[in-house]
Design a protein around this nucleic acid. Sequence first.
DNA 1: CCTATCTTGGAATGGTCGTTCCAAGATAGG
DNA 2: CCTATCTTGGAACGACCATTCCAAGATAGG
Lengths: 199, 199
Amino acid sequence: MPDIKHFDPDTVLEHVVHLFWERGTEATGIAEVVATTGVSRSSLYATFGGKERLHAAALRRYLERQSQPVFDALAADERGLPAIAGFFERLVAARCTGEHARWGCLVTNTHTGATREIAEIRQILDAHHTALRGAMSAALQTAREHGQLRPGLAVETAAESLALLAYGVNLRSRAGAQAGELLAGVRAVLEGFTRTQEK
Amino acid sequence: MPDIKHFDPDTVLEHVVHLFWERGTEATGIAEVVATTGVSRSSLYATFGGKERLHAAALRRYLERQSQPVFDALAADERGLPAIAGFFERLVAARCTGEHARWGCLVTNTHTGATREIAEIRQILDAHHTALRGAMSAALQTAREHGQLRPGLAVETAAESLALLAYGVNLRSRAGAQAGELLAGVRAVLEGFTRTQEK
DNA sequence: CCTATCTTGGAATGGTCGTTCCAAGATAGG
DNA sequence: CCTATCTTGGAACGACCATTCCAAGATAGG
């Protein structure tokens, strides 16, 4: 008997991710979401239930669609260290050039906001961190099996290092850091993880 | 002939740094500044000239009083790598425990805000980065002279690595990361920079 | 002590925020 | 086609925002 939705919630969420990512979640008003999506306040609130919930939904979608595929590819990559180097090369390129240049990472950006204290959002930040570190860990484990790693390097802690490094890249890129400097900084760390086999 | 200020601008700025640092700049209203400092809106605007300028002044004071002394001590430290390790140990401790636990770093927090686009503020972010990387660079150069560094490690790019790592620590600590994990991540990078001298 | 000059308290302004509400519209089972 | 039920557009709400303004207060040179 009832009416059905006149819009696709998933498409709306896609626009919301775009807005929150580029302009910042706290700096984006509901009015802007309404203007961009064409969906009225009523429908927005009936579907997502307020700005905090909308932010959480956008974060989940970002993690699922933007981050996770890249993490999965990294974890499944059989090359080891070159896979990690490639991950960072694509990361720096995506953060400094192209469609999303200077946007940073929606999850990283959320870390410093006031919403970080909300349990629902905090959990997503932690899930992102776990996923990122897990992918790094898997790639490092592969590298280990290929004999690419410096002896004595603990895979789990090295994975944490690389995750922290990625946050640094995300952060500085949003403030205008140059791709070359970011990449050089990343490579120095990776070289430190590499087995030394001079001539 | 004229009247003089009935308050100390520097003391006010100290309170403002505290507010912006702990609660976030965008989340802190002028009303809160008025309530905390006891200084009226008129005086605030006459002295600092609006919220953006106040934010910039607070950032400058933070950089000058909080960051720079630590950077200077690091740059002047004669120990080399142990000085850098000590820097990070104190950083993690300050970010995870004590008076400023979970506050992160005011400069790091500003990177993701909407104010990052204002020229005056962007310059302070860059100045902070240059100072941080410079201090790392000086400490690494000392380490080099002490023969502590892995051969082939470029001091300047390694300094960038460590700066990015510090941003990662600042970011994740604000979201509740555990001190032990942060420290382990840092140490893995430092070990990668160290000359290998097994037994 | 007077007065020119700056400072101060606090009210007022116009704007934007997230959220709520309700009448009008759309839908689909009966 | 009717009607129960959900959705939708858009007005309205109160709270807060940064900023401005002005009369009253404080100051120190003359």
